[in-house]
Simulated assay, not measured.
Amino acid sequence: MLNRVQGIVLRSMDYGEGNKIITLYTRELGKVGVMARGAKKVKSRLGAVTQLFTNGDYVFFRQGQQLASLNSGEIIEPHHKLREDLYKSAYASYLVEMVDRMLGEEDRSLFLFDQLEAGLLAIEQDKDMQIVAHVFELKMLALAGYTPILDRCASCERTDELSAFSVSLGGAACINCRRQDHYAAPVADSTLRLMRLLQQVDLRRIGNVNVKDSTKAQLKHSMRLYMDAHVGIKWKARSFLDQMDKYDL
């Protein structure tokens, strides 16, 4: 069957002497693996459309459970800047890695496709990359059924004196209930307010934000704890970001 889709390249790897296998996240079919024959060759018409982060229109043939074969592609957004800048590339890689590793074959969400498309564009447009990544983490957590409770204590449901973020309780914890979790991360009220805001943000409408370093540090720590506990994946892109921060690359 011939398929025409809009897709974003999540992963691209060499196969054999001249071919590539790419993983697309598509609006129409969800996540799909596609063989691009001859894409590694210098003059291949498929070379550009199979590069990581590329957003394009793709035509591929698939029969039964066999790997699809790419016929043609037309670029909508090449995202050159995401591949040319080390930090942008790392953050963009984290976004596509989340989609690639948290979704099964042909898991489909139009909303998630729009958020991924907008998230990559926001990184390219110099929006705060850490904030974009946290918004996308929250979208992925919601899709997986692990939305953290942020507007009240996740244990007793009181809405005042929230002072920690607890993985085991499932979100914000008040000054009393935080004692139930010795590993709860202390957070300021401003951090919880920011997390609530980011939970509601549509990446298609995200603007420039100015967040204090201390708030971003608390946010990063809390999101790390929650992602690691509920998703449990060792992220390659996130590890690379940590290495860059460590050596100030």
Rank of each mutant, 00 (worst) to 15 (best):
A39Q: 06
T191P: 05
C174T: 04
V132P: 09
Q130A: 10
M244D: 11
L120Y: 11
A172K: 07
R27L: 13
F136Y: 11
G56A: 06
Q200N: 09
L120N: 15
R45P: 12
R101W: 00
C153D: 04
L70M: 14
Q243V: 10
E97D: 09
V32G: 02
V34R: 08
D189R: 12
C177D: 11
L143H: 15
L192Y: 07
N55I: 00
L197G: 03
I75Y: 02
L198C: 07
V49D: 11
K234C: 06
S163T: 15
V5I: 12
V231F: 15
E137K: 11
H80F: 07
R196D: 05
R205G: 07
A185Y: 00
K216C: 04
G18T: 12
D128H: 15
G64K: 13
Q243H: 10
L2N: 14
G207D: 14
A229D: 12
R83C: 05
V32I: 13
S155K: 08
V99M: 11
L116G: 13
L241W: 12
G38L: 03
K31R: 14
I149H: 01
S44Q: 09
I76F: 03
K212H: 13
L225D: 14
V99N: 10
G119C: 04
F240P: 01
E137H: 06
V99K: 07
G64P: 09
A188I: 00
H182Y: 00
S109L: 00
A92P: 04
V34D: 09
L95F: 06
L141T: 10
S222G: 11
L52M: 14
L86R: 07
Y247W: 11
F60W: 06
P148R: 02
A154V: 01
R204A: 14
G30M: 08
G18K: 03
D100R: 09
D128V: 06
G47M: 04
K88R: 15
L2H: 08
Q243W: 04
Q130L: 13
I76M: 09
V42E: 14
L169M: 11
R4D: 14
A154Y: 00
R158G: 06
A90D: 09
Q66Y: 05
L112H: 05
E77K: 14
L10W: 10
L198W: 13
S12Y: 03
A154P: 07
D151Y: 08
R83S: 10
M98F: 01
E137W: 05
A118T: 04
V211I: 15
R62I: 00
G16D: 02
L46M: 05
D114Y: 04
A92T: 02
K31L: 06
A144M: 12
A68K: 08
A229G: 09
F240E: 08
V201F: 02
G30H: 12
A122T: 13
V211A: 06
K41V: 07
A133T: 15
L249N: 02
L162R: 12
F165H: 08
D107F: 05
Q199N: 09
P78Y: 08
G171N: 05
D202S: 12
R37K: 14
R4H: 14
G145D: 08
G18C: 01
D151M: 01
E77N: 14
R45A: 13
E77W: 02
T26A: 02
L46H: 09
